[in-house]
């Protein structure tokens, strides 16, 4: 399903964030990328999401070389296949919960019924519907994360990527997140999590743990 082939990534010339990394992830698999911050695991996520292009090597998703896609098509690929949960949530703070969750759908110009059904559905699933019209800035950290997860799932993507999802959560909320993850796993979604939170290590439903260090897989 997802395949990184001999990826090297340099943000600054001659400083390798990733060095000749190869990795295969099967459909429905849940993979935890673990490693310290700056190890290169976030870079791997952003390459899978086609947010950046590798310096050398290829990223193949569903037999399609997404690392070669022109920007517009990369965005289209993200819109249709990827739900990304960011470390800092990256919500648009001055918009309401509903508006935030709806943003990924806007460019597709769906019929109104379908549009509101999808948004409502995502809000219900991640239990944030009661705050529908609240401005995101006024929500607690846990609520903000639920909005972020709902947004990542609103267009029903095949792949869920999460970058340090528990970094801004207390223990209780982190445990909640694990439960949500379990649910998503049941739905046969392909999930990749980049984290250094030990909470994710040795979980029963995690298929594989991959350790990344200084830009290489150990």
């Amino acid at each position: 399903m997802i395949e990184l082939k001999n990826i090297t990534k340099e943000y600054v010339p001659n400083q390798k964030a990733l060095d000749n990394v190869s990795l295969q992830i099967k459909e429905g698999e849940l993979v935890v990328l673990k490693g310290a911050s700056g190890s290169g695991k976030s870079t791997m996520l952003s390459l899978i999401a086609a947010l950046g292009k590798p310096t050398t090597g290829e990223v193949v998703v569903d037999n399609k070389v997404i690392s070669k896609l022109p920007d517009n098509f990369a965005a289209l690929y993200r819109r249709e296949n990827i739900g990304f949960i960011f470390q800092k949530f990256h919500l648009i703070e001055n918009l309401s919960v509903y508006e935030n969750i709806a943003t990924p759908l806007i460019p597709s110009n769906l019929p109104p019924k379908e549009f509101s059904f999808l948004v409502q559905n995502a809000m219900d699933r991640f239990e944030i519907a009661h705050k529908k019209n609240v401005i995101v800035k006024q929500l607690s950290g846990g609520e903000q994360q639920r909005v972020a997860i709902a947004r990542a799932n609103v267009n029903n993507p095949k792949i869920i990527l999460a970058d340090e999802p528990t970094a801004n959560l207390d223990a209780k909320l982190s445990a909640n997140f694990i439960e949500i993850l379990r649910e998503l796993k049941k739905e046969k979604k392909t999930i990749v999590i980049a984290t250094h939170d030990p909470l994710f290590f040795g979980l029963d439903f995690v298929d594989r743990e991959v350790e990344v260090k200084n830009g290489v897989i150990v």
Partner: peptide, 19 residues
């Protein structure tokens, strides 16, 4: 910076440059 991050978020969740 607020606007910048907004554009960044939109692009990250699948808006094209054209959008």
């Amino acid at each position: 910076s607020q606007e910048k991050s907004e554009v960044g978020i939109l692009k990250a969740i699948g808006w094209r440059v054209n959008d």
